[in-house]
Simulated scan of single mutants.
Amino acid sequence: MNIPKDSLKSQAAEYGIDLTEEQLDKLECYANTLVEWNEKINLTAITQPNEIATKHFLDSLLLLHAIELPQNASLIDVGTGAGFPSVPCKLVRSDINLTLLDSLNKRINFLNALCEALEVKSTNIHARAEEGGRNPGLREQFDVATARAVANLRELAEYCLPFVKVGGLFVALKGYEIDDELDTAKKAIKELGGKVLEVKKYILPDDSKRSIIVIKKISQTPAKYPRQSAKISKSPL
């Protein structure tokens, strides 16, 4: 499969992201590995080269536009699935100390194969987010936690903020119409030690839309969070 490298390069450049030929080659390898594994396990409904380039790669790289990521930052991608948004970002910023966390072992197997194919160094962990958030080796250990997820933001905050150091960021990639969801989530975000810094909105070249919510960790997450997933969904904060 050949992805549209020239258009991806020019689109990324509009957001200040300069993709080298080597990085574009690796993104093409990523696309091929994704489609190959997708025949065995369900990773994505997006399998056309131009759609992968825009809806997966460019969309993921917006994270690097939305925040100033410090050199050698530690980043955990919670419920990473097929590695979005963090693996494309790692291809551009090799200095990132990357941890990929997912609850399905078959996705971790894919990520292990992917990282080997791309020569990407990462720590890939098979665990549920709420288990990881209570693990002393992971809790409040990261400069940035990110998730590109369909979960409601108030639930996502409980899964992700426990991983973030005080002073670090939780960055959520969400749909475009986020205002009501954000209002509903503010109480949870505050309870978990976070504060909304900004919401950035993007319209991609194919007219798909994205909001990126940047939340700063201003105080430690109380020890009782995260709760069990059933409790989180049944009684959201």
Rank of each mutant, 00 (worst) to 15 (best):
Q48L: 13
R148C: 04
N32D: 15
A149I: 04
D207T: 15
L91K: 01
K90I: 10
K200H: 00
L43Y: 06
I96R: 03
R107H: 08
H65C: 01
F57V: 04
S208Y: 08
L69M: 15
T123K: 13
T184A: 11
L118K: 03
V214I: 11
G168F: 08
A82C: 08
S94K: 11
K201Q: 13
G83V: 05
K224S: 13
S233C: 11
E36C: 08
F163E: 07
A185S: 09
T221A: 09
L98Y: 02
I96V: 13
V199R: 00
S229L: 10
F84G: 03
L58N: 05
E130R: 12
I108E: 07
A113V: 07
L204F: 05
S229R: 01
Y225C: 09
K224V: 15
K187H: 14
V196K: 00
K174Y: 00
P136Y: 10
V199G: 03
E68Y: 05
L104R: 03
L169R: 04
A223C: 07
L34V: 07
P4Y: 12
A113T: 11
A145I: 12
A82I: 03
R154V: 02
D18L: 14
V120T: 12
F110I: 00
L19Q: 07
V144E: 01
S208P: 04
F170W: 00
A188T: 02
R93L: 03
L58R: 08
F142I: 02
L197Q: 12
D59W: 11
Q23E: 12
P162I: 09
Q48S: 14
L153Q: 04
L62W: 08
T146C: 14
G83I: 02
D77S: 09
E198F: 00
